[in-house]
Amino acid sequence: AEIMKKTDFDKVASEYTKIGTISTTGEMSPLDAREDLIKKADEKGADVVVLTSGQTENKIHGTADIYKKK
């Protein structure tokens, strides 16, 4: 799966169907969080990951919607 910015995804959204939401939390780098989200998306058969939230304090927390091409 590839990560797309919401603004970029909005241009092609009609080509995809939302298949779920994924999240990651833990003591990790932003890059590790990104890789974890991609891994989870791949496991669910998603083609595209669109980040919906991200937070960093002591731990990273990120959520994303996942989509499959129609």
Score class of each variant (00 low, 15 high):
A1F: 03
A1Y: 00
A1S: 05
E2A: 14
E2Q: 15
E2V: 15
E2N: 10
E2S: 13
E2R: 15
I3V: 09
I3F: 10
I3M: 07
I3L: 08
M4N: 01
M4P: 01
M4C: 06
K5M: 14
K5G: 09
K5C: 15
K5T: 15
K5V: 11
K5I: 11
K6E: 08
K6D: 07
K6V: 06
K6G: 06
K6Q: 13
T7W: 10
T7L: 10
D8Y: 06
D8W: 04
D8N: 04
D8A: 06
D8S: 04
D8L: 05
F9V: 00
F9T: 02
D10P: 02
D10V: 08
D10M: 11
D10H: 06
D10Q: 10
K11N: 06
K11R: 10
K11A: 06
K11Q: 07
K11W: 05
K11L: 09
K11G: 04
V12W: 04
A13N: 05
A13Y: 06
S14D: 10
S14I: 07
S14A: 11
S14Y: 11
E15R: 11
E15G: 09
E15N: 12
E15C: 15
E15I: 07
E15M: 14
Y16S: 00
Y16F: 07
Y16G: 00
Y16A: 00
T17L: 11
T17V: 13
K18D: 00
K18T: 04
K18V: 03
K18E: 02
K18M: 09
K18P: 04
K18A: 06
I19D: 02
I19N: 01
G20N: 00
G20K: 01
T21D: 03
T21M: 07
T21P: 00
T21V: 08
T21K: 05
T21C: 11
I22N: 00
I22Y: 03
I22F: 04
S23A: 10
S23W: 13
S23Q: 11
T24P: 04
T24Y: 13
T25S: 14
T25Q: 11
T25F: 11
G26S: 11
G26E: 12
G26C: 14
G26Y: 12
G26I: 13
G26N: 10
E27S: 13
E27G: 13
M28Y: 05
M28P: 05
M28G: 08
P30I: 12
L31R: 13
L31W: 11
D32K: 11
D32P: 03
A33N: 05
A33T: 07
A33R: 09
A33G: 05
A33E: 06
A33L: 10
A33M: 11
R34K: 09
R34F: 12
R34V: 13
R34H: 07
R34C: 14
E35Y: 10
E35N: 14
D36T: 08
D36A: 13
D36Q: 12
D36N: 08
D36L: 12
L37P: 00
L37K: 00
L37Q: 01
L37Y: 04
L37G: 00
I38W: 04
I38C: 07
I38E: 02
K39D: 03
K39M: 07
K39T: 06
K39L: 06
K39C: 07
K40N: 03
K40P: 00
K40F: 04
K40G: 01
A41I: 01
A41M: 01
A41P: 01
A41G: 04
A41T: 02
D42W: 13
D42Q: 14
D42P: 00
D42E: 12
E43P: 00
E43R: 08
E43L: 12
K44I: 11
K44Q: 13
K44F: 14
G45V: 02
A46G: 04
A46P: 00
A46T: 00
D47H: 10
D47L: 04
D47A: 05
D47Q: 06
V48A: 04
V48T: 02
V48Q: 01
V49S: 00
V50E: 01
V50M: 02
V50P: 01
L51F: 09
L51E: 01
L51A: 01
T52G: 11
T52Q: 11
S53T: 10
S53C: 14
S53Y: 14
S53P: 08
S53Q: 11
G54V: 12
G54Q: 10
G54A: 12
G54S: 13
G54P: 14
G54D: 14
G54L: 15
G54C: 15
Q55W: 15
Q55N: 11
Q55T: 10
Q55G: 10
T56V: 10
T56R: 09
T56P: 10
T56F: 13
E57T: 12
E57Y: 07
E57K: 09
E57H: 08
E57C: 12
E57N: 10
N58D: 14
N58F: 10
N58T: 11
N58S: 12
N58E: 13
N58V: 10
K59Y: 15
K59W: 15
K59D: 14
I60D: 08
I60K: 09
I60E: 10
I60W: 14
I60G: 12
I60N: 10
H61E: 11
G62P: 09
G62L: 15
G62D: 08
T63M: 09
T63N: 07
T63F: 09
T63G: 04
T63K: 08
A64W: 08
A64Q: 04
A64P: 01
A64F: 15
D65N: 05
D65L: 04
D65S: 05
I66Y: 02
I66A: 03
I66C: 04
I66V: 04
I66T: 02
Y67D: 00
Y67F: 07
Y67I: 00
Y67Q: 00
Y67A: 01
K68L: 06
K68I: 11
K68W: 04
K69W: 05
K69G: 03
K69M: 06
K69Y: 07
K69A: 05
K70C: 09
K70D: 04
K70L: 08
K70G: 05
K70P: 02
K70S: 06
